[in-house]
Amino acid sequence: MESLGNYKQKQHRINGIYNMSLFGKNIPWIKYLFFAGLSVFVSCEEVIKIDLHSAGPELVADGIIEQDSVGWIRLTGTTDYFNTGEPGYIENATVTLTDEKGESEILDYKGNGLYRGVSIKGKPFRSYIMQIAGENFSYAASSKLFPAPRLYSVSYKESVFQHPGGSMKSYTIDMKFSDDPMAENFYNIEFYNNGKPGDNGYTLIRDSFFASGDTITFSPRWMNFEAGDRVTVKVYSIDRNTYAYYNQLNDILDAGMGGSSTPYNPVSNFGSSVLGYFRACSGTSFTSVVK
């Protein structure tokens, strides 16, 4: 499932300066507003001790191939929720990366569950298959790599929301990047503020949210920065299935809160017995200081 229903049947595109970016990522405004309202009544938020069951361990596969880079995957096991140690590493697996041209390699084990390739590097418009096999498991997942967009500009403006009594002004970001109008594209945008991730989840958008044309103007008003912040923006092209998977991760990020669905495990492209995902993607990034 993805946000905002099925767009396949809705090919309307709109003109105008403003666009669907306002409603990206599961309509965050409604949730935002709900929690902002709730905060009026909140008396306290505290970290508590709670007993949780012990399940698993289940196989976790975190695999990726980026443009012009070799592929890698980390195979681990789930741990107890409050476990502070390392997870169990899967050390004797055979991992094979194959591209749609039939080229294939076995990834080298590098320790700590990490397997890395040497020869195959990500190329645009190519599909990749990652196979993992161990003593009692064998799974495969595929993903297609799309070229990275060109980031034209990143600028800041004063936010319409300012913290009451805050000494620093809040700023929001506007960015422009290229989009192939002839194809249906999906993007994951990551923000780093002074080197730290600016958002817990994924900021996901697809070009059908936006006015037609070859440029996307995106203004995530829920991202706030202060003057002097060093902000890095990364825009990744991802395929449709990766987009759907990240969307599910976003869903469980605030699971249990009002307005969210009952928690569940996002469905991996390795199958329902595996947690995690294998994705092919390509990104471009830009760093600037908020003024």
Binding site: I50, L52, H53, S54, A55, G56, P57, E58, V60, D62, R74, T76, G77, T78, T79, D80, Y81, N83, P87, N200, L249, I252, A255, G256, T262, P263, Y264, N265, L275, G276, Y277
Partner: peptide, 25 residues
């Protein structure tokens, strides 16, 4: 009755909850 995680895992440099039974807590 609510659904809480019974484990966790790392994906994309983030930690994610692993859920088992529905409304088991």
């Amino acid at each position: 009755a609510v659904t809480f995680p019974s484990g966790k895992y790392e994906f994309g440099e983030k930690l994610w909850p692993y859920y088992t039974e529905r409304n088991g807590y």
